[in-house]
């Protein structure tokens, strides 16, 4: 024991240096940049209009009230309808599921074919697809309206779903393809010798191995579909306005006094679903994007 204590020379603790203080200060500023507006939105949504009129936007609510939230959900006026953002919530859900199913199924099968089967001109196809990812939506919006009109889905849920699927196809196909590229070649060779069927191999071998990447793509797609405004307002028609559209109308179209507390509550209500998805699936998201090779 004595020799051990004799040799016991503690290492010096790491000291806080000027550099680390600077880094911390910078990071704190970055955090504040996002947190301060969020703070204002949250506290405003719990205030009464009487307190808001005083103009102290950073103060905490004097009396906490849930009334703006209730009003935002079920009574706030968007245009001439006064049903709150709840109508938009259900419309968004109705848009979300067909869009997800369509975009995920098409892009995962395309990625699977490009990665694991000998597709003629696969390289060229990938290049064109990659270029498509950079085309702004606004450029092809009018042709898309004509196209969806021709196939009879313009102004319906499926019209929105088709447009979401088409626009997401380049980037999602790339993600799926890069994931499937890492599946060991011998597994695919074995499957080709055992079955040889494109769909059966996809269904029984490849799909069960894709859980991680599906969660990554699911989160990306849910966020982008839920937060979308332009596709929903353009292709959904009058009866399928998503939550974002209802929210915008609520905030813009108030006559007389603006109910800031109701607007803030409506904005938060609209933002909550993707946040929830992140909280629930966030763990898998990190696993998914770091999962490189699949160990056989």
């Amino acid at each position: 024991m004595s020799t051990m204590t004799d040799n016991f020379v503690p290492r010096r603790k790491k000291r806080i240096t000027g550099r680390s203080i600077a880094i911390l200060a910078f990071l704190a500023m970055c955090a504040a940049f996002f947190c301060i507006p969020l703070y204002v939105v949250i506290v405003t949504s719990f205030k009464t209009m009487d307190q808001i009129r005083l103009g102290e936007i950073f103060s905490l609510p004097v009396t906490w009230t849930l009334e703006p939230w209730r009003e935002a959900w079920s009574e706030a006026c968007s245009g001439i309808k006064c049903e709150g953002v709840s109508a938009g919530f259900f419309a968004s859900l109705k848009i979300l599921f067909p869009s997800l199913i369509l975009s995920l199924s098409v892009s995962s099968v395309t990625g699977y074919a490009l990665a694991l089967w000998n597709v003629r001109w696969a390289g060229t196809f990938m290049f064109i697809l990659f270029m498509c990812a950079f085309v702004p939506f606004q450029i092809i919006m009018i042709p898309m309206i004509i196209l969806t009109g021709k196939i009879g889905v313009y102004g319906t849920i499926w019209g929105v779903a088709v447009v979401h699927a088409v626009l997401a196809l380049p980037i999602l196909t790339l993600i799926f393809r890069n994931f499937y590229k890492d599946i060991p070649g011998e597994i695919m060779q074995a499957a080709i010798m055992d079955s040889g069927s494109f769909w059966r191999i996809y269904r029984e071998i490849i799909l069960p191995m894709s859980a991680n990447i599906f969660i990554v793509v699911l989160i990306l797609q849910i966020t982008s579909i839920w937060n979308d405004f332009l596709i929903g307002i353009t292709f959904g028609g009058l009866n399928n306005k998503p939550m974002t559209v209802i929210l915008a109308n609520t905030v813009i179209s108030a006559t007389g006094e603006s109910s800031y507390n109701v607007d803030m509550a409506a904005a938060l209500l609209t933002a909550i679903p993707p946040l929830l998805i992140y909280f629930v699936l966030g763990k898998f998201f990190v696993q998914g994007i770091t999962a490189g090779a699949i160990k056989g």
Partner: peptide, 30 residues
């Protein structure tokens, strides 16, 4: 699949999401 051959691979190439029974059964898929 039509050649009437069976092959054993260096890395075994077992299907990771299938059980042993599932692996053997998939060998008969064709």
């Amino acid at each position: 699949k039509d050649r009437g051959l069976a092959m054993v691979f260096q890395s075994y190439a077992l299907y990771p999401t299938k059980s042993v029974r599932g692996n053997l059964k998939f060998g008969l898929a064709a």
